[in-house]
């Protein structure tokens, strides 16, 4: 939007907070507003033509209503507080949703519309007395990479739909889009270790012992039985895991182009994680040592997502 490039923007604070200021709100008539104005002109002409005073009064009442609507519409936005919380990472091809908490600050604010460019907006009534109403605002479909969501347009046409008041908010929060996972394939690990390696499917067979829970460990590996006996959280270890870290390597990935390879690698990371393997990722210029768990998975996928895009 060319207009938005020089328009006044509401900036968010470090915590993602923003309050819509009175001077950052734009307002213009909608299509209905134009039709309404035309209708009023017609009514005024009729009133004058027939010298009909009740008709004059009706026309002026509706006109005053319209001018009052400018204020009411503006007021519906002014002072609204937002917290831009960010978006959960998604895979390319999936739609990311940006989470925003809205605080109507004391009064009802119906029909508040939040939307990013090129994406469907979210529209809702904010009730008085609800401090933080969470809204997930759809983002446009994006290829892999790390993004700033750009300008959020907060708008409203309430109460009568004759005017649209809007304002831009800069959401300085990252949106991560992982590569789209490709078809399944089998990475070739380090030879020696691969012999022991449990590619039999689950790799969970050889129970090797317990160790203390470390954040990031998979929930399925937690020894719930010992937890139930009040022995704290413990993670079960398996021989296959420790013995044979699986290396997922860029060079081995099938496919000709970089994107295809990244897709294949993403698939491999997902599979390895699902099989509970210990896996590492080796990309040109970036190595992630073998580990497991959601955090590791995220780091691997993130590395894939931003691969080759750093200089942007």
């Amino acid at each position: 939007m060319a207009f938005a490039d020089w328009a006044r923007i509401e900036k968010t604070t470090a915590g993602g907070r923003a309050e819509i200021g009175a001077r950052r709100i734009y307002i213009l008539p909608t299509r209905y507003g134009m039709i309404y104005a035309a209708l009023l002109t017609l009514m005024l002409l009729g009133a004058i033509n027939y010298g009909n005073n009740p008709a004059h009064l009706l026309t002026f009442l509706l006109a005053a209503l319209g001018s009052n609507a400018i204020y009411q519409t503006w007021r519906n936005l002014r002072g609204l507080r937002l917290v831009c919380l960010g978006a959960e990472p998604v895979f390319a091809g999936q739609r990311a949703h940006f989470r925003i908490d809205c605080d109507p600050v004391g009064r009802e604010r119906p029909a508040i519309q939040l939307g990013f460019e090129d994406a469907e907006p979210a529209l809702l009534d904010l009730k008085a007395g609800t401090a933080d109403t969470a809204v997930s605002v759809p983002l446009p479909l994006l290829p892999r990479g790390l993004y700033q969501p750009g300008r959020l347009t907060v708008s409203t046409q309430y109460p009568v739909g004759l005017f649209r008041a809007w304002c831009y908010v800069d959401c300085e929060r990252d949106v991560l889009v992982y590569p789209q996972p490709g078809v399944a394939w089998q990475p070739v690990g380090d030879e020696g270790e691969q012999l022991d390696g449990g590619f039999e499917g689950s790799g969970n067979e050889d129970f090797a012992g317990l160790r203390g829970y470390v954040p990031g460990d998979q929930a399925s590996r937690i020894d719930w039985k010992s937890f139930a006996r009040d022995r704290g959280l413990n993670t079960r270890l398996f021989s296959g895991q420790a013995a044979s870290p699986l290396w997922i390597e860029f060079e081995q990935a099938p496919g000709g182009g970089v994107e295809e390879r990244l897709s294949a690698l993403a698939r491999a990371v997902l599979d390895a994680e699902q099989q509970g393997r210990f896996y590492g990722l080796r990309l040109p210029g970036c190595v992630l040592t073998p580990d497991a768990g959601p955090l590791h998975r995220h780091q691997c996928l993130r590395a894939l997502a931003v691969f080759g895009l750093d200089d942007d």
């Binding site: 010298g51 005073n53 004059h56 009064l57 002026f60 009442l61 006109a63 005053a64 209503l65 001018s67 009052n68 609507a69 204020y71 009411q72 119906p110 309430y158 109460p159 009568v160």
Partner: peptide, 22 residues
């Protein structure tokens, strides 16, 4: 909301009505 709209519009309507040239 409706009453707030109409109530605030009424005085303007009346003043314009009284002063609009006939």
């Amino acid at each position: 909301a409706t009453l707030a709209l109409v109530a605030a519009a009424a005085p303007l309507a009346i003043v314009v009505f009284l002063l609009f040239p006939r």
